[in-house]
Write a protein that binds this DNA or RNA. Structure first.
Lengths: 352, 352
DNA sequence: CGTCGGACATGATACGTATAACTTCCGGCG
DNA sequence: CGCCGGAAGTTATACGTATCATGTCCGACG
């Protein structure tokens, strides 16, 4: 067969060029002088005691030489598995979820899996059903608890479901991966308390999701445990403009004015800083501000934001790992990833 | 067989529940009293003159009642098409490309297409070959010119390729969609010239990509056309920290100092603003700063950035549309989307 | 020496779909 | 009346893979 290769290599190439090189396992079998079944066994790494080492080698060599790529559709049809996962994230698709996706994709690639991203829509009516036809082309789903509307559709889809930042007690999930949001909130509280702050405003995300509920509760508990502190909650959407408005509300409300604003998101914190300055005050001398997420934005604004750094890539990676484990039949797990307070210029001692 | 159904309907359901309702076209055919071929014809909308209207209706009804979802793997195997596109974006996966992806996904969904995102890696060595197995599961590729390393791998993949922000003369592409980057650069130049600026620093992205080359050239041309202006180019990476350093370089270089800094990216502009202030100068009274992209960050910093708004979602949508057209056999096209200068607080009259 | 089991290898099959090829029916035209 | 052609269906097949069921060969064990 090697002599055959030598006789007309150019012709081979010419024939294959237009058809874009559709090499099948049968082609490999022919080239290696074995049956198609043997090729499948060897490349599937199930050949011990079924194919001789010599033939296995020649199969691998032939596959490499021909540039063989298994047809994924055929494989899926045969096995019923697609090696594809769906990642459902909220419509507010920003840096954080882009990083989550990156982490998930890397981990997936190592296992030969692909990731399809589904940004749950905002204004365009109900979701165009990612679980319609897609159901037949997915092995599992990873969903952020913030994608609330999509979660309803997920229920009963019959697919393994990994939940990100959701109540670990939720029994719909094959696994749960959480960030230690409560711990982050406690770190923020401790930091501000240590700086002497006693009147705090909480610019709380106006989103119905477990992760923000936890955040609010942990914050309330932490401040309640410190004597003589007052915590006021002001709901806000997750945007700079909304943060500005909410901060204005918090700072111009009933006296005495809060000396620190805790924000559920860096974007909100950026808006809050602007509000502080528009009132003729300074950050952090008059009002301290904290964020959440540690986005690129956190070091772009001035002063740079004290914020809670979330391991976004690791979050996505852990989610994918949990899904892969679930697909391997592992028992449901609940993992929590640690987060870190990053102290920067937007917080300082409380004014006396 | 209908009597059989009637005798034990509960058993049928019970059997199907664990297997997660695998309804095939044959099941639909049985329920509608037609052949599997008829089902395929009706649902594929190719039944005119092949199936009576009455039967077509009953097929559709049966499909709906049974919750039939075509098996995508089988369909792909049969047709050789996967209705899936790959979107290749640079590793610096940020807000801009998240929005491009959103636009592409929406357009794709309307055509029954899916989108797989491939963030071309940075540190982790050569790309894990998205065109390996994936080649058999993709119909086409949309690639940003910024994903330079991936473009090499793309060449010769034999897949229709739509290029985003790439040289329209590149004949590898089945279509090209560009943002009017040059026009945006000219608008920035005109704006600054009108404000009286004559000494300009250009914080230029240190990235080898067509789009940034165009930007630099358009800027150079525009200022060269105005008498008595000086443009100095300082390369920078695309981060806040790098922008800060580059701006420092530009502002502390040979006298006289530039009165305006044009940045290739909002992130860089944010860093530049910080550098200005660290030198004891003000934005925009002493130095005007402009960005590019109009990210969320642009209105988070203070002062808010004068920048060029890019229609990110529309960019992704246009790319997908171009790919769909190419797959329909249309001739190669080159489209350019307009961009807008957004004037905010970071630019002002040149100091006298 | 018979046979049993393990190593090696192959043929056949089914996954679910789209479509080419084939049958049947019937109305209309020469 | 014979025949043609289009509508309305069906049957059969192939896409490429993974795996089950066979089959052969040989060394070893009883």
């Amino acid at each position: 067969m090697s002599s055959n290769d030598a006789t007309r290599p150019a012709a081979d190439d010419a024939v294959r060029a237009p058809g874009a090189a559709r090499v099948t396992s049968r082609d490999v079998a022919r080239a290696a002088g074995v049956s198609q079944a043997a090729v499948s066994l060897v490349l599937g790494d199930k050949w011990r005691g079924r194919v001789s080492a010599a033939k296995a080698d020649s199969v691998r060599a032939a596959a490499r030489d021909l540039g063989y790529r298994p047809n994924l559709a055929a494989r899926s049809l045969r096995t019923g598995r697609t090696r594809t996962a769906l990642l459902v994230v909220p419509a507010l698709t920003t840096e954080f979820f882009a990083r989550v996706h990156t982490g998930a994709t890397r981990t997936a690639a190592d296992a030969g899996f692909g990731v399809v991203l589904y940004p749950s829509p905002e204004g365009i009516g109900p979701a165009p059903d990612p679980f319609g036809s897609a159901r037949t082309s997915l092995d599992g789903v990873i969903a952020s608890s913030m994608a609330v509307d999509a979660l309803a559709a997920l229920h009963g889809a019959g697919l393994p479901l990994v939940m990100l930042d959701n109540d670990p007690a939720d029994d719909r999930a094959a696994a749960t991966v959480n960030l230690d949001i409560a711990g982050g909130a406690r770190q923020v509280a401790a930091h501000l308390l240590a700086l002497g702050h006693r009147r705090i405003g909480h610019l709380a995300a106006d989103v119905d999701s477990w992760t923000f509920a936890v955040r609010g509760r942990a914050l309330a508990d932490a401040f309640a445990a410190a004597p003589g502190t007052a915590l006021r909650r002001v709901p806000t959407a997750l945007s700079v403009a909304a943060g500005l408005t909410a901060a204005h509300t918090a700072l111009t409300g009933p006296e005495p004015r809060p000396t620190a604003l805790v924000c559920d998101d860096d974007v909100v914190a950026a808006g809050a800083c602007k509000a502080v300055r528009r009132l003729g005050l300074r950050v952090p001398e008059d009002v301290s501000v904290t964020g959440f997420d540690d986005l690129a934005l956190a070091v772009a604004v001035e002063p740079e934001l004290t914020t809670v750094r979330l391991p976004a890539e690791g979050f996505g990676a852990a989610g994918m790992r949990a899904l892969l484990d679930a697909l391997d039949g592992h028992r449901p797990t609940a993992r929590t990833l640690p987060v870190d307070l990053v102290t920067r210029g937007s917080t300082g001692p409380a004014p006396t």
